[in-house]
Design a protein around this nucleic acid. Structure first.
Lengths: 117, 117
DNA sequence: ACAAGTACTTACCCTAAAGTATGTATCATG
DNA sequence: CATGATACATACTTTAGGGTAAGTACTTGT
């Protein structure tokens, strides 16, 4: 029975609220290797699961659905499943997810300015 | 002798350039648990090492200097050491680091909009 | 009857990032 | 002569995130 350390920063940061640090809050939502890439793909319009896989060839299926699920629970993407066979599942950005555009744009702008120095 | 898998996505993402994915490029610079918090602290002006420690009580010294070093090599913060005893070391945002302000502001704005929904 | 396509699921492994704990150099001061 | 203050360094451990590989359910086409 291995003890879980409740008061570690690791655990603390998980439940961090917007009031503690808004930037950390955002990082928890869109941080990591894959989430920004997935969001970026969906910014060019809704896509089926298989289309996302083709658009991001390096991602594994596990990572793809795992992050898509997380993005759903965070209300950044919507999932629409048509009950046909073979299944047709379409993912799209929610209004909240669409609102991320200025954030990602600011990042891209900074990235190019950083490159020039 | 354990083989290192050269062609893993893990390794691939490390050397990712701005041309592949600007957002991932930015994430590599300011992502993680602590970097945004440190940058945010320095946005209110230069601070000594000990001041940063007091301002971010949860961070360990190891994490603090480790990320300060990384931020230096990425040219986001400057380090100024006065050769006195006891030492006086002051950290401040570089011009490039200061340029991150719109990015962090966009994040904060989005965070508060997200909270209302 | 079996391969193919779709959208997942699950079990197991590996590593990088984060955390813990302790040590170092220098000098002023009591 | 030992303590305190500052700004680190370093060895070891833990954990969360990511990766690999294989399996599932359902139906259409051959």
């Amino acid at each position: 029975m291995t003890q879980v350390k409740e008061n570690s920063t690791r655990n603390y940061n998980k439940g961090i609220s917007i009031n503690n640090c808004p930037v950390t809050y955002v990082m928890n939502k869109i941080g990591g290797h894959w989430k920004p890439i997935i969001i970026h793909q969906l910014m060019s319009g809704p896509k089926r699961y298989s289309e996302l896989r083709k658009a991001i060839p390096e991602i594994t299926e596990k990572m793809l659905i795992q992050h898509l699920k997380q993005l759903q629970t965070d209300d950044l993407v919507n999932r629409e499943a048509r009950p046909v066979v073979p299944p047709v599942v379409t993912y799209s950005l929610s209004p909240l997810g669409t609102d991320l555009t200025p954030v990602l744009n600011a990042m891209v702008e900074w990235a190019f300015r950083a490159q020039q120095c």
